[in-house]
Computed example of a mutant assay.
Amino acid sequence: MARTPSDGAPTSTSGALPESWIPEADLRLSLYVRLARIETDDALDAFEEELLDRFGPLPAEMAMLLAHAHIRLAARALRIARIDAGPAAIAFTPRHDCALEVAGTGLAESKGRWILAEVISSEAERVARVESLLDGFGS
């Protein structure tokens, strides 16, 4: 997971609508646009159900893309502007109006960002860790 801006789709090399799953380029593009416009968890869940109904089981790349979309929605709701997650650390950049407290979360504040210095080499594990941290903020 390279970066997740709260105002757009997350960027990732592994999250995608695989051509092998949906061969029609126009349909894939249409689905990407729809996904980018989703603004609620309920709408994202409905989109996932539609994909399952129309195309069958989700390939790993699509599951990752949906995970990034869930992160985008959670970050937006929590007023987090940006998330950077690499193998050595995860960094959250809060918006100016973010009122979250990070005391006791294991995150260190540095230059207006919250940093978790934790080695996580797998993208899937980083995504799960980001989801876990966002869930903790929301509780």
Rank of each mutant, 00 (worst) to 15 (best):
A25Y: 09
G112S: 08
S20Q: 11
A69T: 11
A74P: 04
H68T: 05
L58C: 06
L44V: 08
R82L: 15
A88F: 06
L116A: 08
L35H: 03
P10L: 05
A60V: 15
E48C: 05
R34M: 06
R129E: 11
F137V: 06
I115D: 07
G104F: 08
E19P: 01
L107M: 10
H96V: 15
G8N: 08
R126I: 11
A99V: 14
A75M: 15
A36K: 06
A117I: 01
H70R: 15
A77F: 05
S14P: 02
P57K: 13
L73G: 00
A108M: 11
I80D: 09
H70E: 10
A85H: 08
I90F: 06
W21G: 03
C98A: 15
R129T: 15
G112L: 05
A63H: 01
L44K: 08
R95H: 06
A67H: 10
R37W: 08
A77R: 15
E118P: 02
L17E: 02
G86V: 07
D135V: 13
A108I: 13
V127G: 11
L133P: 04
M1V: 13
A77Q: 14
R54L: 12
P57C: 06
L58D: 02
A99R: 15
W114C: 02
L31Q: 09
D42K: 12
D97Y: 03
G15Q: 04
P57E: 15
L52W: 00
P59N: 06
L78I: 02
S139A: 09
E109G: 10
R79V: 03
D26G: 10
E48T: 14
A16W: 03
S6T: 10
Y32T: 13
A128K: 14
A88I: 02
Y32Q: 12
R28G: 10
F55M: 06
L29C: 09
A9D: 03
T105R: 02
E125G: 03
S6V: 06
S20I: 04
L29Y: 08
L73P: 04
L78K: 09
E109S: 13
P5E: 00
P57M: 12
L51R: 00
P5Y: 00
R37F: 07
D84Y: 06
F47A: 00
G138K: 14
P23N: 12
A91K: 09
A124V: 12
A108D: 12
M62Y: 08
D41V: 03
I120W: 03
P94D: 02
T93F: 05
L65K: 12
L78Y: 02
L51E: 00
L35C: 11
S12I: 07
L27V: 10
M62L: 15
A69P: 07
V33A: 06
L100V: 09
G86I: 10
E61K: 03
R79M: 05
A43S: 14
L133S: 01
E50H: 05
A77V: 05
R113P: 05
L52D: 02
A103N: 04
L116K: 04
H70D: 09
G106W: 07
S20P: 01
T105G: 01
S14D: 09
L44D: 07
G56Q: 00
I38F: 00
K111V: 07
L44R: 12
A124M: 04
S14N: 13
E24G: 01
A124N: 10
L65A: 12
R34N: 05
P23M: 09
P59L: 02
S20F: 05
V127W: 09
L65G: 11
P18R: 14
P57H: 12
L51N: 04
D26K: 14
S121Y: 13
D84A: 06
